[in-house]
Nucleic acid binder design. Structure first.
Lengths: 209, 209
DNA sequence: AAGCTTTCTTATCATAGATCAATTTTTTCT
DNA sequence: AGAAAAAATTGATCTATGATAAGAAAGCTT
């Protein structure tokens, strides 16, 4: 498949920057970064325009980057041996996305990252980010906290998969992520909940009646 | 239920320490800590002797601590509305355990921590650990990496729950955690795999035949 | 607007694993 | 060792969700 996204220009050394610094400051809003720190960070961010359908990361590619979503919608999913897709994560505005399991160890992707609504994302490499950790320690804390949230979300998901019927999990999903529900297809939601699209359809029918 | 564990004495300021510093150094073996750093850490560790059956943490208690297992075996589990137990994690020698979701935010426990084989554990408070992060930055990195591993394990579990039948999940479990298999009951394993003990029994029967 | 293509729905039948109810085996305690 | 408790097994039946197969509806494209 052709690459459907294009890179924006990138200028190093902070002389000229194509990326909106103000926006970068908002990404890390609670950190109270110094202007020079924001500039330093901005230099490592790369803005990408993605068309719906783009596969940003393919299975077995080494994962060097994570992405911050400015707009649009992406998801990570796993293709199992029987050809079924299992959605691990959706990401809309202000979410981070990657195959984190592979990202952390700079190893091969198990997941694919797919753009499911035209999107603008920042691409951030792990390597550059680790250099930044040393310069701006609060960044490491920022990402540690993100990770803690992600960990908690995964645990919650394991428990709801184990203890709740599909109908309850669907209710939780639309209640917890109303904005995501609007950006994705029902078959995406089904693959996230771990049911077939037919089962989801039956659940939805039950609800409306 | 009576408390079945007793605290060991604890001496502050590094004047006298009841806890084996050599052992502490091993906990963080890859960090290459200085002797004074080890001493500093040791002062925040509290050694507990636990009897099988002890509930170290009850649902709805605020979670201030995590535990490092020196010996024995513990598990965290969730009691769902219908009275079923769902095991989230087992911990044997050299594993860390807590209700991390609550631990990270110092909020109320959803899980219980149960000692399932007589154990010796170190208790480490989040608060003290965060002070240590500032003094010994490599500690924050150490725990971030642990978290990354835990995150990856959770993702793997979500995917295997969604894509594999119980039999395959059981095979993976005993292959991945042979040492845990020997320390826990089959009904613990069943509650980890998300099946009933009857189903696990049938799977085991199939294997032996 | 007509015709594709994608997405969603509906119906029928199949099945993994649950539930219920005993029973047997293993472990623990006195 | 023998009794009691805990854990594991087995059988019969039930149920939520899957698989398969059509169709209907919605969204794009020209």
């Amino acid at each position: 498949m052709m690459k459907q996204f294009q890179k924006t220009k990138k200028y190093y050394l902070g002389v000229l920057m194509s990326i909106d610094k103000k926006f970068i400051a908002e990404v890390f809003q609670n950190l109270d970064l110094q202007p020079n720190e924001v500039e330093r960070i901005a230099a490592t961010f790369e803005l990408l325009d993605l068309k719906k359908g783009t596969i940003l990361l393919h299975e077995n590619e080494v994962v060097h980057d994570q992405y911050y979503v400015r707009s649009g919608c992406l998801r990570t999913y796993f293709n199992d041996v029987s050809g079924k897709e299992h959605t691990i994560q959706f990401a809309i505005k202000d979410w981070w996305i990657s195959d984190y399991t592979a990202f952390f160890s700079t190893s091969k992707a198990l997941l694919q990252i797919e753009c499911i609504q035209d999107a603008q994302v920042y691409k951030i490499s792990r390597k550059e980010m680790e250099v930044l950790y040393a310069e701006i320690p609060s960044l490491e804390t920022f990402f540690r906290k993100k990770m803690e949230k992600g960990f908690a979300a995964f645990q919650k998901r394991i428990l709801s998969n184990l203890s709740q019927p599909a109908k309850d999990r669907y209710y939780s999903f639309i209640k917890t992520y109303p904005n995501i529900e609007q950006s994705v297809k029902n078959y995406h939601i089904a693959s996230y909940l771990g049911i077939t699209t037919e089962s989801l359809s039956r659940i939805r029918k039950e609800i409306t009646s």
